[in-house]
Structure formats: structure tokens, C-alpha cells
Amino acid sequence: QEVVNPEDYIKHPLQNRWALWFFKNDKSKTWQANLRLIAKFDTVEDFWALYNHIQLSSNLISGCDYSLFKDGIEPMWEDERNKRGGRWLITLSKQQRRADLDRFWLETLLCLVGEAFDDHSDEVCGAVVNIRTKGDKIAIWTADYANKESVTHIGRVYKERLGVPAKVIIGYQSHADTATKSGSTTKNKFVV
């Protein structure tokens, strides 16, 4: 009788079930109506099946977003799990769309589904990529801006995973500050 290795036929379960959302900017519709759930997955294999099936971020038209959030958390500030939180924000230059955008977004996804932030991964809510003419943005959203230890751990690991040079500073901003800002920039609660 042949002994079968479970590794060969059981999909690799993720710690969390994740939901991928797509936003397409149609000004004739409300913000919420422009937001669509694409699919949910909870295994390594199903993550790749989805990732390989959809367009790269760099192929999306301006105004579109992808969001990957833990199942049960909606990709908006108002969600109960997001409203006290904030984001580590990566702002990209126009040139970086070709050079870095798809690589950074995939690395972000791998950090999330692989639970790269150790015990602090529980503080992660999701991540968003915004495709914009003036410059694309990628962010990891966490649950509580006041949880300094988790927020800074996540920021340090994330910066290293993206290969951002030490001299380049990335900032963490609370959603409350982003929502109430008056100018075009939001003050950073933390930097790494």
C-alpha cells in the first residue's frame, strides 16, 4: 500500500480568510456602489489562483483600487475594525508605476497572507493600492493607531520587505487625521 504525503494533496491553509475588493471610480455612482467584492480565499493555492487571474495593478486605469482585507472587515474607514486605526503609507512617483508598483503590491499581499508581522499580524486589517494619475499609493491598514508597539513593528518589517532604503522615511497616519485633514498632507503619527 502506498503512503500518501498530505503535503501533496491538501491545500496550505492561511491563518486568515481574506477578501479582495475592487474599486472603480464612476462619478455617476456613490462611493460604496463603486466598490465590489471580487473573491475570498483562505489557502496559499487559492490566493495564487486569484492573483494570477486578475490584472496587475499597473494595468488598471486611474481611479481604481484593489483592497485586500481580512474577511469581515470592509475596506473603509467607517468599519468598526478600522475606525480607530491608520495606515503605513507608501507614496510612489509616476516613474515607480513601471519600476516598483506591481512588485510592492505583491510584496504587500505576501506580507498579509503569510502573516509576516508575527504576533502583531493580528493588528493588520488589510491593504490598499490606489492607482492615481498624480502618483500611486500603497498602504497597510492596522486596527489601532494607539498601539505603538504593533504599529512600529509592522512599519519596520514592511519597510524592510519592500526594500525601501533606510534614508527614505515612511509614515503612519491615523484614518481620523486623514478624514479631517484640511490640506493635501496628513501628519504622521509614527515614522520608520
Binding site: 492561511l14 491563518q15 493555492e45 495564487w48 505576501l110 503569510g114 502573516e115 509576516a116 499580524s121 520587505r161
Partner: peptide, 20 residues
């Protein structure tokens, strides 16, 4: 225990034949 996967492990599955 948390199910953690490092990047190389995850990348190794990108082009695996689909599970049946």
C-alpha cells in the same frame, strides 16, 4: 500557533498545477 509563510515559500506555489 499562527500559520506563517515566508515569501519564498509562498512564491514557490505561484505556478504550481492547480489542486484537484
Amino acid at each position: 500557533k499562527k500559520k506563517q509563510y515566508n515569501r519564498d515559500f509562498l512564491l514557490g506555489f505561484q505556478f504550481m498545477p492547480a489542486c484537484v
